[in-house]
Write a protein that binds this DNA or RNA. Sequence first.
DNA 1: CAGTGGTCTAGACCACAGG
DNA 2: CTGTGGTCTAGACCACTGC
Lengths: 251, 251
Amino acid sequence: MAPRSPSGQPRAPEAAAIGFRPLYRQVRERLLRRLAEGAWPAGGMLPSEPALAAELGVSPGTVRKALDALAAENLLVRRQGRGTFVARHDERRILFQFFRLVSDRGERQFPESEVLALTRAGANAREQARLGLAASARVFRIRRLRTLGGRACIAESIALPEALFPGLSERTLPNNLYGLYAEEYGISIARASERLKAVILPPGDATLLGVGPGTPALAIDRLAIAIDGRRVEWRLSRCLTRHLHYASELV
Amino acid sequence: MAPRSPSGQPRAPEAAAIGFRPLYRQVRERLLRRLAEGAWPAGGMLPSEPALAAELGVSPGTVRKALDALAAENLLVRRQGRGTFVARHDERRILFQFFRLVSDRGERQFPESEVLALTRAGANAREQARLGLAASARVFRIRRLRTLGGRACIAESIALPEALFPGLSERTLPNNLYGLYAEEYGISIARASERLKAVILPPGDATLLGVGPGTPALAIDRLAIAIDGRRVEWRLSRCLTRHLHYASELV
DNA sequence: CAGTGGTCTAGACCACAGG
DNA sequence: CTGTGGTCTAGACCACTGC
């Protein structure tokens, strides 16, 4: 095939409708859309690079660049000699991508969770704002106590748009919620943004965590975004940082 | 030139001494070493891709991959149509790479600093451990009060190995310390790792920041690493997060 | 052994910057 | 106009995996 413009004057008519971004960007977005649609199951293998290239009518190098980008976003996992796979929300990935609390001795460990309550209510103002919900929207609220190494250290409040999670019930709640969202509701969390503050633990949380009034805690306000860009979960975690810290690499 | 093994069986004898990593990795490390040696001044332009490729005896694509990697690490800046440049430690870069505190209204702003003291002392146990110093080593200690939008919000204590910063004196201390390290001492900070905890502000810091006893603060413990891997600076910042938060993107 | 991703090369053209 | 990085293509061989 003759070289084509990098800005997109391709011969294939289907590609012309995509737009004027670089071709590998367009390929990335097409693959992203198919991932969001669930075209391949979690953990499933994608077609090989030459197969995708032929299917999309671009060169293998262009497909490779798109796949590399999606792998860098932790949406795909590439394994030499085996293939390219849809990333799963297993504990390893959560620990690597979404969990930044580390014991002061350096151990990264996935916390245990005890669900204290699952309730339904109309979304309050903060929930509406953070999740982008209408004033009439309803949410599930989950309250959990989390422990690390047997020590209670996180009091957590979670809000989920009710419309996205039909039939959610307390006994279905596993420790790894993102795995549940993916497997039961086809919602794949792709990224999250966190805002951290230092606060004095509110009395309820202090009691829950078994510490005195006036104890400081790290408040982590996390908004989780799905692969299609929807705001899926708002989570407020108050963490005791006496034996833990939040690790952040500035690279 | 004939294709060569990706594991490195190159013809050029100089390259044979590098090792068995991928060629683009080897090229990245050679360029990194030259950056660390100060072969090009901060803000200076590197040779063009074809020139580097000819000089190193590899294909332009391989050089490109190495340059892209260094640009992704914020050590180089690539500008289409102009060239590839050594990244400078200007306020924009600091704000982008090293400063995570954001006003709750969303503005990212570089804080002002007032130096309260610059002293010299033998390194204490924590300084020795964090900076990897011998028991006999000496350090500079800097104490600063930092303000954002006119509001005092950060009490900061900094420790620097005395051996790395000969002649450091109080009147030479600018607001942007990383710029000083680079320009006056040829030390380029490449990355940093931070550990965050929630604490009760010690009385001295509370007085300095003009808040009452028992006020919670975000303690940011940062170790800054130079481009050659040396531990250069240990910094402990205690931040009031009443109108600020620490932003962290989980991608 | 066949099939996969990983690396390396070579060369074309485009977009952008600045003289 | 020249020179730069950015994109796209094409094809070779290597390294790893699992049958």
